Simulated scan of single mutants.
Amino acid sequence: MILYYFIKVITLAIISLFFGLSVDLLGDLPDGPCIFVANHKSILDPIALMDAIDRRVFFIASKDLYKIPILNLILNALEAIPIKKNSADVNAIKEAIKMLDDGRSIALFPEGGISLDKSVIKIYKGAMYISCKTGYPIVPVGISGTDVVLPMGEYFPHAGRISVTIGKSIYPDVSMDKGDCLDKMAHEVVNSLNSLINNRNLK
């Protein structure tokens, strides 16, 4: 936990000093644990999400990232949940549900990786499955500007401003058939993320 807040303080200071970070909260955050989902344009997105949210979050990260030296140590220290990419990882889902049941909030990028698309088009439904199964809400987060500050494939930052817009919580209808609940929430999440991104880009 100490490492998490140390990284948060350092990165927030750097982003605020050299680039700028604005955060808009469009609705009240749930009092209890929730599932934060965000669009993914840059390797800076996890940092932007961490810095913008005023609570401890536990990331779900691709197992491929654990193959990168130093990064794997950071992910383990942050207690991130490793997940197999492009597959239904039952163990990762169980671990995520356990964290939520323990009162912790989790965060993930449902596109499954960095996307070059201007809007969110396709997402994996792991977050929606967890929400429909447990009843915990999803909080959509639109991130803009990270792809300008640090575009995909580059390692030296450019001038720019990062904006994070935290949308209204999306609650599952647990009375519905699980498949219908899953599809309904996925549709709502995609629409919400695109709305948050587009509204920010118009400002």
Rank of each mutant, 00 (worst) to 15 (best):
V189Y: 00
K203S: 06
A92D: 04
V57R: 14
K184H: 03
L49K: 04
G160V: 00
N76Q: 06
I170Y: 05
S115D: 01
S105P: 05
P157T: 11
R104L: 05
F19Q: 11
S22C: 07
N86K: 13
L26F: 07
L193C: 07
S192W: 02
A77K: 14
I162K: 14
L3H: 11
L26M: 09
S175Y: 12
L150A: 01
A38R: 02
T11Q: 08
A96P: 01
V37Q: 13
I70A: 03
T146I: 01
F156L: 10
M50R: 11
G32C: 10
I106A: 05
S163N: 13
I47N: 10
Y129E: 14
S115W: 00
S195D: 10
V139C: 05
I166F: 07
G113V: 04
V189E: 05
D89L: 00
F19G: 02
K84T: 00
D24V: 12
E188D: 13
I130N: 05
I70N: 08
L17G: 12
G135F: 05
P140Y: 00
V120W: 01
I47H: 08
K63S: 12
D177Y: 12
V148P: 03
A77N: 07
N72S: 13
M50C: 04
P82F: 10
Y171H: 14
R56S: 00
I166L: 03
N72Q: 03
A92V: 05
M1K: 14
C132Q: 07
I35W: 01
S163F: 08
V141Q: 03
I2P: 05
F36R: 13
I93N: 03
I68H: 13
L17M: 13
S62H: 09
I53Q: 13
A13R: 10
S87P: 01
F58R: 15
N91T: 05
G27C: 15
N198P: 04
A159C: 12
P110M: 08
T134K: 03
P137A: 04
D101V: 12
D102W: 11
M152Q: 07
D24L: 07
V149D: 03
L202R: 14
K125H: 06
C34N: 02
A88G: 13
P46F: 05
G20T: 07
K41R: 15
I114K: 15
Y5N: 14
K122I: 00
S42Y: 04
D28S: 15
P30W: 01
K98V: 01
L65R: 12
V141H: 04
I74Q: 07
T11W: 02
V37E: 02
M176R: 10
V141A: 08
I138S: 03
P172A: 12
H187M: 10
G27W: 11
S192L: 06
T165P: 08
A96K: 04
S131T: 10
D45R: 13
K67L: 09
V149W: 15
G20F: 00
V174A: 04
G32D: 13
F19V: 02
K41V: 00
D64C: 14
I106S: 07
N86A: 11
L150C: 03
D147I: 12
P140G: 07
